[in-house]
Amino acid sequence: MRRIGHFMHAAVTIILLIAIAIPFIPLFFSSFSHGWRWPEVIPHAFSLRAWVYVFSGNSGTWEAVWTSLEIAFIVTLINLLLALPAANVLGRLRFRGKWLIEGLIYAPIIIPAFISVMGMYISFIRLGLTDSVTGVIVAHIIPTLPYMVRALIVSYSTLGFQWEEQGQMLGASGFQRFCYIVMPHLMPGIVAGASLSILVSLSQYLVTFLVGGGQVMTLPLILFPFISGGDPAIGSAYTLIFAGMAAFALFLMDFLLKRYYGKKVTVHL
């Protein structure tokens, strides 16, 4: 029985590994290929052409990566500031009309943002929000904010009030209580919410495209013409960069938050 268990475990692990890792192999080959004809499993010739193009100064890759990350992080920061007070009461208090607020907050998770953006596109133009990074940031708040609130609610609901009350009795100010009691406890929720917020913001194509009007070039916008029928090698290279950027952004955020707060937690709790 034990050996069967072992075997099953190994089998399932390997299958999952294959399912997750294998799709990346042709992507990798394709980005380095020089004329990859059917039925070659591995290209007969390799070339750095696609990567040279992608990293050439004029292709705008770095600017796009920077713009994408900038927007994602600013959006996430705004979300955090907006969501903290809301999650505070939604996670810990009962009040009238709460279900309505919750409904409002969760709705954008399933109703896609482009519906709202298309609806108010003309107003966006009139308010001067199109063709600007500001406008794109504003538009990205719609699909990302709900995830942040959601994640923080879960953290707040496990926090309760007693820790803060204890801190108060020991003479901690409101700010101190927030920094040393609330924040460390919320950290996993913040990391989760920020991860989702960053990811969702990085993946936006249509909303960025509509509001940014070509003046705000994020990576998905540069990538799209190449993967929808353009040059497959360059499309693959961009796709790899896109995936890498998402992973990097999450790693960076995780690292920074944990690094910064990890220290305080160990000292004070």
């Binding site: 907050i105 107003s123 708040i141």
Partner: peptide
């Protein structure tokens, strides 16, 4: 406390839906 979040979503999200 919920005003910032709810307000932003009301204007951007619900506002967009209504305009649409």
């Amino acid at each position: 406390y919920v005003l910032p979040t709810a307000g932003v979503l009301l204007i951007l999200f619900v506002g967009g839906l209504i305009e649409g």
